[in-house]
């Protein structure tokens, strides 16, 4: 059994806050949008909580961003520039999740401190962290003070455009949260990734000498 330190403390800290915050944002956001259908809390409470946690998450995003910008760990987010290589690797990863994993085949992607994401994770997290989360934050801030940011709201095409973008990303996350939590349970044991991300920072890599030959971890 080999242990690799893949989730440094700032990343874990960011992730704890983000996970709790996101769930709260999804709940309050749903309450705000569906008054009368859902009755978790009053509309007013939902608005107030949504605004506060929103700002906490924006601050929190900078923990993540600054950590990666000022360490060489940013390499985990470097994209694979060759499309053929990327798609081949993604396909292999898909095959693994759709078949190999049930057979007990090894994960075609080998985790290391500088290469912790498989090709599909890598693409997904780039889009999420550099596009969707910032866009969600910007549209959120604009909606927070439509009057004060009148110029910016108008520039982006009016309050309906801004709000629709905010809602579309929310809808994406309504899918992503389920997906993400489930994928997190597909480690060598169901809780392996959770322990790594929420507690230790270390991923445990099982050594299976002789199995598959090519996989040297």
């Amino acid at each position: 059994m080999q242990r690799i330190y893949v989730h440094p403390f700032p990343v874990r800290l960011w992730h704890w806050i983000n996970a709790v915050g996101f769930v709260a944002m999804m709940l309050t956001g749903t309450q705000i949008r569906y008054v009368g259908i859902i009755d978790l809390m009053s509309f007013r409470t939902a608005v107030t909580v949504h605004n506060w946690i929103g700002f906490v998450l924006i601050g929190n995003y900078f923990i993540w961003l600054l950590f990666y910008l000022f360490t060489d760990k940013i390499r985990v987010y470097h994209p694979e520039l060759s499309p053929t290589k990327h798609f081949k690797a993604s396909f292999r990863q898909l095959q693994y999740y759709g078949y190999g994993i049930f057979k007990g085949s090894p994960n075609p992607h080998q985790v290391s401190a500088y290469d912790k994401f498989n090709p599909m994770q890598s693409m997904m997290y780039q889009v999420v962290m550099f596009l969707l989360v910032p866009l969600l934050a910007v549209t959120g801030v604009l909606l927070w003070d439509v009057q004060g940011f009148y110029g910016a709201v108008d520039f982006f095409g009016g309050i309906r455009v801004v709000d629709t973008v905010h809602v579309l990303i929310y809808i994406f996350f309504a899918f992503f949260i389920f997906f993400h939590v489930y994928m997190g349970s597909l480690g060598h044991t169901p809780t392996a990734h959770y322990k790594a991300m929420f507690v230790t920072g270390y991923e445990e890599i099982e050594e299976e000498p002789g199995h598959g030959g090519a996989t040297k971890r």
């Binding site: 705000i32 949008r33 569906y34 008054v35 509309f43 909606l143 108008d154 095409g157 009016g158 309050i159 309906r160 455009v161 709000d163 629709t164």
Partner: peptide, 13 residues
Amino acid sequence: LSVDSLREFYAVG
């Protein structure tokens, strides 16, 4: 269709 024609009016919910 109102995304542009009502670009200045939207009440959440």
